[in-house]
Design a binder for these strands. Structure first.
Lengths: 168, 168
DNA sequence: TTAAACTTTCAGTAATTATTGAAAATATAT
DNA sequence: ATATATTTTCAATAATTACTGAAAGTTTAA
């Protein structure tokens, strides 16, 4: 396999994984492209390489910037904007964890907290089951949330080192 | 808020979270309904409670069974099938981890392993960046995979206990 | 067997989500 | 000011994904 084919496969694989985990496929693909591109590139180049429209490229790049995964670079004397992705995988993981926690996990935990408080007849199996399930899921979600926070604040080698010291 | 409203909210919240993380919304909702229902219920009841068609209910239930989250129960002397969800949240987490690992993580790790082997000119920045990125992501993915396996084999209290002993 | 009770399938349709492309907006240079 | 380069927006459209409902299939009982 040559480099060009390998690049395409990487972009495809990353896009597929993204879409399976609720991230827009194009967004994952643009990110993948930037990850394997040494220098900042322009919207034009992204459009060409992935065969997507200007509108799509523009919106996707904005999203990636909002996710903190890509940054804009301006070349002196040039009007055009160039884009560059942080290539440190631990930063990427952290950034994704941070955003998904904020956007998706926190809201659901908030709802679960409210639902935990709902009162009812403790003799009623329907109430008992509801209450226990919500409480248990809430607890699990809170633990996952804590784990996310830990990831956010940890250094990569320290994190995995500590994890696999116990779970060998 | 009364119990009925709380149930609806729970089903909604769980469905939303599911869809944000790449799980069919209806599947997450049926699962949520079964999670808060003390006794096994029939397809009819699921159809009614969630206002979905028989076909949708049937396919969704099969999926949940394939994911190992729901089991079929037969009542003696009755022809109808009833469905029941395991309510142990740790089992649920484990089961989801097991399936997603198998369906989504393993395939991508396989591709990444192949791409790591692609050879090229070590003077070429395009190749260097590609190779390093793929290698790094591969390593991260392998660690996430290992973490999944650990979850799969661990007891809940032991797992969280060990985690938060280090990451206090 | 036949019929009744129930489950499964899947072509057609609906709903959702993603993308295009051209017009509007913005920024810079002359 | 005007022209030019570039980015942004968003209504229209396309692509994808999910759902329905009725027909076909299966199982059990009489």
């Amino acid at each position: 396999m040559d480099l060009e084919e390998a690049k395409l496969q990487f972009i495809q694989a990353w896009g597929k994984l993204g879409s399976e985990w609720g991230i827009n496929r194009t967004m994952a693909q643009v990110h993948a492209l930037l990850l394997i591109t040494p220098e900042p590139i322009s919207t034009e180049e992204i459009m060409e390489q992935l065969s997507i429209s200007r509108g799509n490229a523009n919106m996707t790049i904005r999203d990636l910037i909002n996710w903190g995964l890509v940054e804009k670079q301006l070349k002196p004397g040039e009007r055009k904007e160039y884009f560059y992705a942080d290539k440190n995988t631990w930063n990427i993981a952290r950034q994704v964890a941070r955003e998904r926690r904020k956007r998706e996990l926190e809201p659901v935990i908030k709802v679960l907290n409210e639902l935990t408080k709902v009162d009812g007849d403790s003799k009623d199996p329907a109430y008992k089951t509801f209450h226990k399930t919500v409480k248990d899921i809430n607890k699990l979600a809170a633990n996952v949330d804590k784990l996310f926070v830990t990831v956010l604040n940890a250094e990569e080698s320290w994190f995995w080192g500590s994890i696999f010291k116990i779970f060998k």
